[in-house]
Design a protein around this nucleic acid. Structure first.
Lengths: 198, 198
DNA sequence: AAAATATCTATACAGTGTAAAGATACCGAC
DNA sequence: GTCGGTATCTTTACACTGTATAGATATTTT
C-alpha cells in the first residue's frame, strides 16, 4: 500500500499526514505544498489529484487536528476511573486541562483547528455535533446526575464552559494571559457552577 | 505631508494604514506587500526602509487593530450615561457585546489582533497593561463599588470574564457556535457572578 | 555650496501555488 | 490474456510572492 513506484498507493492520506506533520512544526502559514510533496518524494502537482488546492489540504489537516484534540481529551478522561461525585469533578477539570494543554503543546495545530480554515457552519444545533461537543455534554450530564450541577443551568453551562476554556487557552497561547490563568479559571468555573467543596 | 514627489513624506504611517485596509478586506494571509505598496504608488522595496519585513508590518497593523477594538469598546461605554446599579450592569454587558460585535464585523482584523502576530509576553502582570485590560478592570471595579460583585470574586472574575467573552467571540466567528450563543453567555455570566435582578 | 544621509526605484533571484500537457501504471471488458 | 480507458503521477511553464542589492534622488547637515 506504500510501495515506491510510479503510483504511490495511498498518496491522499500520506499527504494529509505530511501536512499535519509540517503544520505541527512550522505552522500553517509557513508550510509549502512543495515541501510536503518533497517529503514524500513526489511531484508538487501530484497533490492536485487528491485535493482541489493547498487550502483544502490544510483544511483537512485542520480537521485531523480537531480529532487529535478529541483523542487527547478522551485519553485524559479514561485515566480517571473514580466514580461518583469526586470522579465527576475530576473528569470535568481534566477536560479543561487537556484542552489547554493541547493548545500549549501543539500551538500550530490548535491555531489551524480553530482558525479560519475548518469553519463549521452552525455547529451547535447541527445534526452532526463535533466530538468535542459530545465529550463536553457528557461531562456536564455526569455533573447533573451527581447532583452537582443544577439542571436549569446545564443548557447555558455548555456555552459558558466551552467559551471560557477555549478563551483562556487562546489568550494564554497568544501571550495575553499568563499560564497560571488556566487553573484560576477552572477554580472560578467550579465555584460559580456551585461545584465547590464536597 | 503627503505630497507626491520622489519622497512620499509619511510612508510609514501610510503603509500601516494601507496594511490595515487590505487586511480588513481580504485577511492577513492574503495580503501582499506589493499590493499595499502599489496602492500608494510606491515601489515594493520602499517598505523596507520603514519595516524590517512584511511580518513586522502586519504585526504593526495587528496592534492598530487591537487599538481599534479598544476604541470601539470605549465608544460603546460612552453611550451609556446611566449611573448607579443599572448603569454598571449595562456597561458590563455593553463591554461584552462590543467585543463580540467587533469580532463579527471585522473578522480579519480580529484574527490578526489575536493571532500569532502581536504576541504580548506575559500580559496580565505586565507593567504596561493593554487598554482592553484596563477597560475591563474598570468595569469590574464599578460592579464591586455598586455592591453587585463580591470583592473576593473580583480578581478571578477578570480572567473568567475576559476568557469567556473572547472564547465565545472566536467560537462564533469560526462557526463553532451560533451567534445567539453570545447573549446566552452574557446571561450566564451575569447570573453566575450574582448580578441578577436588583 | 558641498558632503552625508535618508528615502525611494530598478533589477534580479529564489521560492510559491497551480494550470496544461505528456508519461506511466492500473483495471475492467472483451 | 490483450486491449482500451482511466486514474495517477511527472514535466514544464507561468504569474506572483518576499526581499536582497545597487543605483537614483531628495533632504539634511556641515
Amino acid at each position: 500500500m506504500s510501495k515506491p513506484g510510479y503510483h504511490h498507493g495511498d498518496l491522499e492520506s500520506a499527504l494529509l499526514q505530511g501536512a499535519v506533520n509540517r503544520v505541527r512544526l512550522v505552522g500553517a502559514e509557513k508550510v509549502s505544498l512543495r515541501a510536503i510533496a518533497g517529503d514524500l518524494g513526489v511531484s508538487p502537482s501530484a497533490a492536485y489529484h487528491h485535493f482541489p488546492d493547498k487550502d483544502a489540504l490544510l483544511t483537512a489537516a485542520g480537521f485531523a487536528a480537531i480529532d487529535k484534540l478529541a483523542d487527547q481529551q478522551e485519553l485524559a478522561l479514561s485515566m480517571i476511573s473514580v466514580i461518583g461525585v469526586h470522579g465527576a469533578l475530576a473528569r470535568f477539570r481534566a477536560l479543561g486541562r487537556s484542552y489547554v494543554d493541547f493548545a500549549l503543546n501543539e500551538p500550530h495545530l490548535f491555531r489551524l483547528a480553530f482558525g479560519e480554515h475548518c469553519v463549521i457552519p452552525d455547529a451547535i444545533d447541527s445534526e452532526a455535533p463535533t466530538r468535542a461537543w459530545t465529550i463536553l455534554t457528557a461531562a456536564l450530564d455526569e455533573l447533573v446526575n451527581e447532583g452537582l450541577l443544577k439542571f436549569e443551568f446545564r443548557q447555558k453551562s455548555e456555552i459558558l464552559v466551552w467559551s471560557a476554556v477555549h478563551g483562556v487557552a487562546t489568550l494564554i497561547l497568544e501571550g495575553k494571559l499568563p499560564p497560571e490563568a488556566a487553573d484560576d479559571l477552572f477554580d472560578s468555573l467550579a465555584h460559580m457552577l456551585g461545584l465547590d467543596h464536597e
